[in-house]
Amino acid sequence: MELAYIDTAMARVITVNESRIDAAIAISFKDRMRELTDSDANRIVVDMAQVDFIDSSGLGAIVAAMKQVGPTKTFELAGLSGTVQKVFRLTRMDSVFVIHADVASALGGPLADAG
């Protein structure tokens, strides 16, 4: 499970360096997200741009990650591919998450300038 993070002035940005979040890695995704979201940052942005595919187990793990963060922090997604967007739409989870076109628009500018 390859997740990386960078702390900017605006948010902790967690990048998913996996092409799939599926049943095979859903549990390790949820566990690693728990470690990376347990920080002082009160805003989490998850960069999904490299994720081509999620199944319902992967979606469940993303929902679980948001629930782990708790109500005092925000948990947002960025860069959903076409197939990933489709799974969010079919389950209506697109109405639950804050979803940005990409990380730059989530932070209001290029990532390199945000920190």
Binding site: S56, S57, L59, G60, A61, V63, A64, M66, K67, P71, V87, L90, T91, R92, M93, S95, V96
Partner: peptide, 24 residues
């Protein structure tokens, strides 16, 4: 269809599969 209303802590983490399959 699962309800997604209510607080975040009550959101379902599973049970999406057959709904997705039957829609497609």
């Amino acid at each position: 269809i699962q309800t997604l209303e209510g607080p975040v802590e009550d959101l379902p983490e599973g049970g999406f599969g057959w709904s997705i399959i039957t829609q497609l």
